[in-house]
Write a protein that binds this DNA or RNA. Structure first.
Lengths: 269, 269
DNA sequence: TCCATTAGTTCCACTATTCGGAACTGAGTT
DNA sequence: AACTCAGTTCCGAATAGTGGAACTAATGGA
């Protein structure tokens, strides 16, 4: 293993080596993440890239339809992103397997039901079933939310391997969305302990004031893949007693989904 | 311009010059488009790329989260695509402007209402409002459909510049989804003539048996940007008379959206 | 059991692409 | 007119992608 020459740096880089593609996607990420449309110069400052390079990169992204350049000189997400996502959603066999269970859970409770999966340090919402809604139609499909202040996030964290959990926790940055948001790893760990023994997680307005939920994890044979489902409701309809009453239902549904998974092991999560 | 050596092909390539990124996205497109999960060898045959190159490209795409590799060796769309799209959707100011009008149109008719925009040779659905649905929840947001057999597609085609329309028509490939699908440019052009004078378009089960719609175009000051809205209903509720009765409502809504656009010219479509 | 075949991964010399400084355009301002 | 600031183009140097070939792992038939 060890060699005479020490010219090669051993393993300093944690950066994924994805070359040119990685740079382009990082740029795409930056632009789509921005709270408001960025102009060329804004991006220039944010990235520190040389003018020439940035210009070419943006041109490529726009030509590919991943970004749109408005007539007013700003850049925003391109329509092609929607097209790709539509395929991703349509093909997610995990979502397909879970769908009937979500629907049933919704019918049993009358409340909004979510399906989310762990990706990196965040939860991505894969599906949702809700009642008559006035606005915010399909809002959060695909949305990324923190693990430490969402029911599904905490539930998923409670079932991953110790190594993965440690890695995720070490990288967390606790933003105080509400007074109830966990403020550090210690508080979160304590909560996770309870969740592990109970088998389900609460979110008592930790991410958004007025919104509570009960969530249950779905574990799988694939250790790197954790997910969960939740029942979400406005605080006035979600008393602690009510949430406890819902817990068995979420657990049952999560379990049912888990049992249905093996039939289609893998194809596309 | 002309040189002695004829070794270099003059200007055959219409391909957009997006270098390395273009190749990666083309591959992503191929994989996400596939009706069923592809294995390494399948992709190898489809692309004709050399083993080494393909292997690296796929690895990069997987590392970036744009593709997922299942334990069974197949590749499918990655979760990061959903994340990107969620941002694209949330930031689409055009969608935001149109939303209340879609909702009103839905309340007036009780039927499903769509918002779609023209991208390349296809229509991308940006939003939809529908009633109580059993399944197929948010199915087609982001979905791409042909211009020649959808109400919104034909409506949008009727308002773009002659040059753009000619370019799109020349590249179309008429797939006969139903007996009513237009079979060639001539038939489509005839239909477009009617649509232009009427101001709205019908889709009489041209894309899917049992599904009909009325659609109206939304034109904008930006010539390259065409879109439309539609009321869609099952054939038994959408007699020709009923569709004609709906037409003024769609036209009115489309017009209202058009008037609302200038307020936020541009940012992100 | 063995050999043949197919599937997937690694390696490395070659070359096409990206990189980035600098020069250019063009609109708005003093 | 002279300035600044925003965006675009150009080209030699540096780097990252290319693709043939060799390697390993799994599958399957005789």
């Amino acid at each position: 293993m060890s060699s005479k020459e020490d010219e090669k740096a051993p393993e300093i880089d944690k950066l994924a080596d994805t070359g040119t593609l990685g740079k382009a996607i990082a740029l795409l990420d930056l632009v789509t993440r921005a709270p408001e449309p960025l102009r060329f110069t804004d991006i220039l400052k944010l990235t520190g890239l040389p003018r020439g390079s940035l210009h070419r990169q943006l041109r490529h992204l726009v030509l590919e339809g991943l970004l749109d350049d408005s007539p007013d000189g700003t850049y925003g997400p391109g329509l092609r992103l929607l097209e790709f996502a539509s395929r991703a959603w349509a093909k997610s066999s995990f979502r397909e397997v879970a769908a009937p269970h979500l629907l049933r859970l919704h019918q049993q409770t009358g409340e909004t039901v979510h399906l989310g999966v762990l990706r990196g340090h965040e939860i991505i919402y894969l599906d949702k079933v809700e009642g008559r809604q006035a606005l915010r139609l399909h809002s959060q499909i695909g949305k990324a939310s923190p693990v430490y202040c969402t029911g599904i996030g905490k539930a998923a964290l409670s079932v991953v391997s110790d190594e993965l959990r440690a890695e995720i926790l070490s990288a967390l940055c606790f933003e105080p969305f509400t007074p109830g948001t966990h403020k550090d790893v210690a508080a979160l760990l304590e909560d996770l302990q309870k969740i592990k023994s109970a088998g389900f997680a609460f979110d008592m307005e930790e991410h958004e004031i007025g919104i509570r939920c009960v969530a249950a994890p779905i574990s799988s044979n694939d250790a790197a893949f954790a997910s969960g489902i939740s029942i979400t409701a406005p605080a006035f309809r979600a008393s602690p007693e009510q949430l406890k009453a819902w817990a068995p239902l979420v657990l049952e549904a999560a379990h049912a989904i888990q049992l249905d998974i093996p039939r289609r092991l893998g194809p596309a999560k």
